[in-house]
């Protein structure tokens, strides 16, 4: 072991932080090298001198000053620590409740007005109008049935408006039909009869806010 290597390990040797192997090699070198031995002794001297420095007493006012500063810190309760809802979040939670209800109300009101007062709100309905043209992009159509006898009125329950899904209206086959729902609700009784009964059932089911009911354009005769 060279003097350079030994002197690099002397501090750790003094601190007893060397492995047994390193320690033995340093000890061996020190026994033969007066120069490194002098460095070792001086290192030991420095360590001893540092360790025996007279400790300065801590000022008595230390804790008092710390306590004053701690007490001046804002007092945090658990409620204050809880994340405050942001204004944006408040608007969103309000809208999440109100918007589906408003949409559902509107959707129910339009056919009601049409059916009770015989007013065609859109002025588009006709017995031969196809509710959804296959060439046009899917869109929501709300039309009144052309006539009593021709309408086998179809209601369609579209789940997912409240949860943000986009309901495809181009095909009704995969959607949850109200007719089926009514049949399920009225197990044991006969199927849907009059439009009034269907509306009554529809209104009852509207109480479930997670469902939005869309009435797709009336004429189904093909």
């Amino acid at each position: 072991m060279t003097c350079n290597m030994t002197q690099r390990l002397i501090s750790a040797y003094v601190d007893r932080e060397l492995s047994e192997d390193e320690r033995a090699r340093v000890r061996q070198h020190l026994a033969l090298c007066a120069e490194c031995m002098a460095v070792y002794e001086m290192t030991l001297e420095v360590k001893t001198a540092l360790g025996s420095m007279a400790p300065s007493p801590c000022p008595e006012c230390l804790w008092e000053n710390v306590r004053d500063r701690i007490e001046a810190l804002p007092f945090q309760t658990e409620l204050e620590c809880a994340p405050r809802p942001s204004p944006l979040r408040a608007v969103w939670s309000f809208a999440r409740l109100v918007v589906p209800a408003a949409v559902a109300g509107t959707i129910v009101a339009i056919p009601l007005v049409q059916m009770i007062f015989g007013v065609n709100v859109f002025g588009l309905a006709g017995p031969r109008q196809q509710p959804l043209a296959s060439s046009s992009p899917p869109r929501l159509m709300i039309t009144a049935p052309a006539s009593e006898e021709s309408s086998s009125t179809r209601y369609q329950a579209v789940r997912g408006v409240a949860s943000g899904q986009t309901a495809s209206m181009s095909s009704s086959s995969g959607l949850f039909g109200l007719d089926a729902a009514i049949r399920r609700n009225d197990k044991g009784s006969e199927g849907p009869s009059s439009p009034e009964r269907q509306l009554d059932l529809l209104l009852r089911r509207m109480q479930d806010s997670s469902l939005t009911y869309t009435w797709i354009g009336g004429s189904t005769h093909e």
């Binding site: 690099r8 501090s11 750790a12 601190d15 420095v46 001198a49």
Partner: peptide, 16 residues
């Protein structure tokens, strides 16, 4: 280990 070694070496020279 390196910091203590170099620190003590500096101290040795100055305290000598």
């Amino acid at each position: 280990r390196s910091r203590i070694h170099r620190g003590r070496r500096g101290l040795r020279e100055r305290i000598a």
